[in-house]
């Protein structure tokens, strides 16, 4: 019985894995006409420093957990000023259609995710569902280097039912991190943008009184700042 079940599972896994395909679209990469263009500048350090030599790639993806197709459409490398241009040709099956059959385009950066802060947690800079032919999109992107804040909350056991406390990390970055404090989580390490100002704002309500405190820090890449707050 167990053997039959294992064989069945193996067969299902084989069937599922065979339905996921990835192709390279060289016609699109060498777009002969009616091109879609995504261009812009990639920077870091609060948009003050261009990111040169970063490989960027456009992919089209459609599917679900059972079957999918991933098609590489264009690839380029940022120049010395961080400028890039991705030029590609949309095929008919990549044009916008009705949800949920709609595929999506992503712009991915070939970066070391240990060094750079990105909202998606992965290497996706842009995701879009409705690109058209003969269209140019300008997309400037800030890709901050990564620093860290080790935050420590004290006296959380004093929190009552209507009390709250959270800490936000605000900067000119693609996303904002918010930590809500409960009684169990008293210490966390949060990645933040390096080489640019980051506001650490903690908001708390204690016994009906709401207070906001702010601290501005600028950290070098890879450095860790210790932040402690007592409820």
């Amino acid at each position: 019985m167990k053997t039959s079940l294992l064989c069945l599972l193996a067969l299902i896994a084989l069937l599922l894995s065979s339905c996921h395909t990835q192709t390279d679209d060289f016609i699109s990469k060498n777009c002969p006409g009616s091109c879609t263009v995504i261009k812009g500048t990639l920077t870091t350090d609060g948009r003050t420093k261009p990111l040169a030599g970063v490989k960027l790639e456009v992919q089209w993806h459609e599917g679900d957990m059972f079957s999918s197709i991933r098609r590489r459409k264009a690839i380029t490398t940022t120049d010395a000023s961080g400028n890039y241009e991705l030029r590609f040709l949309l095929r008919d099956d990549e044009l916008p259609s009705t949800y949920p059959d709609n595929g999506s385009f992503t712009v991915k950066a070939h970066i070391n995710l240990e060094n750079y802060l990105n909202c998606s947690g992965g290497n996706i800079l842009l995701r879009t569902y409705d690109l058209k032919r003969d269209t140019t999109i300008t997309f400037d992107y800030l890709l901050p280097q990564k620093a860290f804040v080790e935050i420590q909350a004290n006296n959380l056991q004093a929190k009552q039912q209507d009390d709250f406390m959270w800490t936000e990390f605000l900067s000119d970055a693609p996303c904002t991190t918010v930590v809500s404090w409960y009684t169990s989580d008293t210490k966390q390490i949060i990645p933040i943008a390096a080489n640019q100002p980051v506001i650490i704002r903690t908001t708390k309500r204690k016994s009906g009184v709401e207070t906001v405190t702010e601290e501005v820090i600028t950290l070098a890449p890879g450095k860790t700042f210790n932040y402690e707050y007592t409820f």
Binding site: I27, N30, C31, P32, G33, S34, L89
Partner: peptide, 11 residues
């Protein structure tokens, strides 16, 4: 030399 419905790719 590749002829496509959207133009020619020529290298």
């Amino acid at each position: 030399h590749v002829e496509t419905t959207y133009g020619t790719i020529a290298q």
